[in-house]
Design a protein around this nucleic acid. Structure first.
Lengths: 267, 267
DNA sequence: ACCTGAACACCGTTCAAGT
DNA sequence: ACCTGAACACCGTTCAAGT
């Protein structure tokens, strides 16, 4: 059998053909939706695939990163998740960096819009805490944003919009343009809810077989040990152990905002 | 020629042999220093190779990262730099993570020791500014430390020592253990000189062909534009453009230290 | 006992060929 | 015009074989 039927997509939206060395079945290639196999015998149903789009690619990527972190994210795995060949993704994102930028844009877009009817301090505080809630949903976002900044990439539109409205809140609150500039530097990535820890909580981890013995720990790092014991003790009444990240974040945020308020008064 | 001479390393420190299909030259394998080729004819000098060590591996890795960033760092490139096969590195570091930890340890060790004869605020301030100078020499250190924290790795000994002495300075300055705990969270990775920017200076970059037109920029992001113009203007008298990173870092550091000092007074 | 080449299981991306 | 398989140039690491 050597029949081939080509119909131009411009007229029909489909290309129909019978592959040369195949099983002789008629296949149809819709213009926008990838290949669909159609049975030539009557009654056999077509099994169409959801069309790929930038949104589908991004949400698959975000789901993958939410689950396994940014290390588990690869073009090949995203493609596999979508039941598609890796190269198909490159129709919708130019490369992996553009994919990362798209992911950042999507999650920064989840941050609540600014509340219009409060003072600057409350407005900033609420917004930053909303950003932090977003970041807890998407723990990978922190390092992705940082890596993109380090690569000296232009901030994505959603980040630009976020920063613009934050600057606007400071300005409306009576901050001089110079002080707003300093304020943005002081708040830094905390604006996006980053908590910038130097320690991670280790209490929920498997006991490390070659970890240091407690008495050696106390001898080498007496002040760290004192602090760790105090934190552990103060948390004994509360459920779990380790310190309250949310409290520490708000403590640092408020210390910063209070400092800025004081500066505004004297400038 | 089918002569092979094997001498046990336990007695001589060397293994001598003539490879079967080779040029017939006698070779010597020293126990600790890798293979050295020795000429059999008199007068020809041996050409020994500097023995590999953890220090040599680490300094090659640091040099590579200083030059091309952490993305340019790979086990294979380090090996190439040292004139060695990649697998030879695994004698001195168990894997890449241990290599990264070793690199962190080495550069954190470059931070000046604490000054003993000043008040807590000056001592912390000097030390943090020394950490920042280290970080400017090794810009990759920031992201490597962060990635290791995110991987929930135990801080390396040099980092532990650094944190311990910082806590000690606060304690000696009259801070309660609880307030020290909060202070460490407030200062976060700024303790290591991280500046935590959300913007990178873009003034020295090639003009992006598909960048936004200035008027569109001003329309979409009015507050960002106002701030950018103000910064550019205030810097016109000074050499170069963009803002003074060092000033902004110290501004944020001092605002934080002042806030902590005030809290110490009332707690 | 030490060292190392080849191999394995990945990765992002290019490119020519298929339809 | 769209899609895709094979290939390229990497990567960290395992492992059996060489000496």
């Amino acid at each position: 059998m050597d029949v081939r039927v080509y119909l131009s997509w411009e007229w029909t939206g489909w290309t129909l053909y019978i592959p040369p060395g195949g099983d002789g079945r008629l296949r149809a290639l819709p213009v926008r939706e990838g290949m669909v196999e159609m049975a030539t015998q009557a009654g056999a149903a077509a099994k169409p695939r959801a069309p790929l789009s930038k949104e589908r690619v991004l949400s698959a990527a975000i789901a993958l990163a939410d689950e396994g972190g940014v290390d588990a994210l690869s073009m090949r795995k995203i493609a596999q998740m979508l039941g598609v060949v890796p190269m198909a993704l490159y129709k919708h994102v130019a490369n992996k960096n553009e994919l990362l930028d798209g992911m950042i844009d999507a999650v920064v877009g989840e941050i609540d819009p600014p509340a219009g009817d409060t003072d600057w301090k409350t407005a900033i505080r609420r917004r930053v805490l909303s950003a932090r809630r977003m970041l807890l949903r998407h723990p990978w976002a922190c390092e992705v944003v940082e890596s993109r900044i380090k690569a000296r990439a232009m901030p994505t539109p959603a980040v630009m919009e976020y920063l613009d409205s934050m600057i606007g809140i400071f300005r409306a609150g009576g901050f001089s343009i110079d002080l707003v500039h300093h304020a943005m530097h002081v708040m830094g990535s905390r604006l996006l809810g980053f908590s910038q820890e130097l320690f991670e909580d280790t209490s929920d981890r498997e006991p490390d077989p070659d970890a240091m013995a407690p008495q050696e720990m106390a001898a080498r790092y007496p002040h760290v040990t004192e602090l760790a014991m105090a934190v552990a003790h103060s948390q004994e009444s509360v459920v779990g152990s380790g310190c309250d990240d949310q409290f520490e974040f708000e403590f640092a945020l408020d210390l910063t905002l209070d400092g800025l308020e004081r500066l505004r008064g004297t400038t």
